[in-house]
Amino acid sequence: MPVSMYEVSVPVFISMLTAMSHVLKKAQASAKERGLEESVLVEARHAPDMLPLKNQVYIATDMAKGCASRLAGRDVPSYQDVEATFPDLLARIQKTLDYLATFEPDDMKGSEDRDITLKIGGNDMTFPGRAYVLGFVHPNFYFHVTTCYSILRANGVKLGKADYFGQG
């Protein structure tokens, strides 16, 4: 039986965003234990030309809600990108998880071959649904989830591989 577009999107996003929430909760506790202002971790970045932790959360949640919406032919909800604390970021993830829970497998039937057009760098880019999910969304989504984890790890938050999967 072929894998559905729903199976390769919504459950994957739910699993990894739940794990991202777990990692952020551990970071919040770490900041408190170490007497750090939360903003030190929320604004942390790997390099001066990289986006800070909060933006990694913005982009991961945007990828998830955007992908599910486009595959189902729905309008993509807009978030303001103003979250600047761990509670704010956790609320954004939860809002995205709640939104993802509104999708059913039938919502995405036939989307594997439907064209998805995005504006990237001012240019239209069109992908068939399958290529959009597997070749564009997944790499971007995992990059930002992993970067969130690695920024926190590099800043002294005690995280292990199991935490990346929400099990630590």
Rank of each mutant, 00 (worst) to 15 (best):
V145G: 02
I151D: 01
P48T: 09
P77Q: 07
D81E: 14
L51A: 09
E43K: 13
R153Y: 01
F143V: 10
R45F: 03
M1F: 03
A64L: 06
R45D: 10
D88I: 00
R92D: 02
L159F: 11
V76N: 03
L134T: 15
R114V: 14
G66D: 12
Q167M: 15
R45V: 08
S69C: 09
F103P: 00
G135Y: 06
R114I: 10
A19H: 09
E104M: 04
D81M: 00
K26S: 10
I59C: 04
G135H: 03
G168D: 07
K95G: 05
S21V: 04
A47C: 10
Q56I: 12
T147Y: 02
D88Q: 08
A131F: 02
Y6Q: 09
T117E: 09
R74E: 07
H46A: 12
M16L: 13
P105G: 05
N155K: 10
A91H: 02
S4I: 09
R74N: 13
S15L: 03
P11C: 13
Y79E: 06
E112D: 15
G168I: 13
F103I: 11
T61S: 07
I93M: 03
G110H: 01
S39V: 13
V133D: 01
I151F: 03
L24E: 10
A60S: 14
F13A: 09
A84P: 00
D81W: 01
I116F: 04
I59T: 14
I93C: 02
G160S: 12
T96W: 01
T18W: 01
P48R: 04
Q56Y: 02
T61H: 04
K109Q: 14
P48C: 00
F86L: 02
M1G: 15
T96Q: 00
G129K: 05
L97R: 01
P52T: 11
D49M: 11
S150N: 14
G166M: 00
S69G: 15
V137R: 00
H144T: 12
F165H: 08
G73S: 10
G129T: 10
P52K: 08
Y142H: 13
I116Y: 02
V23S: 11
M125I: 15
E37A: 14
A19P: 06
E112Q: 10
L41R: 05
G168M: 06
M125V: 15
K109G: 01
S111M: 03
K109N: 10
T117D: 04
K119M: 13
E83V: 04
D107N: 08
I14S: 11
G129F: 05
D163G: 04
K161F: 08
D81N: 13
C148W: 00
V3P: 02
V133W: 02
I14F: 00
L24F: 09
K54W: 07
D62A: 12
L53I: 11
A162S: 08
N140R: 05
H138M: 09
M50I: 08
E43M: 08
V82W: 00
V57E: 05
A131N: 12
D98F: 03
L90R: 00
P139N: 13
K65S: 06
K32T: 15
F143D: 06
S111K: 04
R70Q: 06
D107Y: 02
S78F: 10
M1C: 08
G166N: 05
G122H: 09
I151N: 05
I120H: 07
K54T: 12
P11Y: 13
P77G: 07
Y164V: 00
D124C: 02
M125Q: 15
L51P: 01
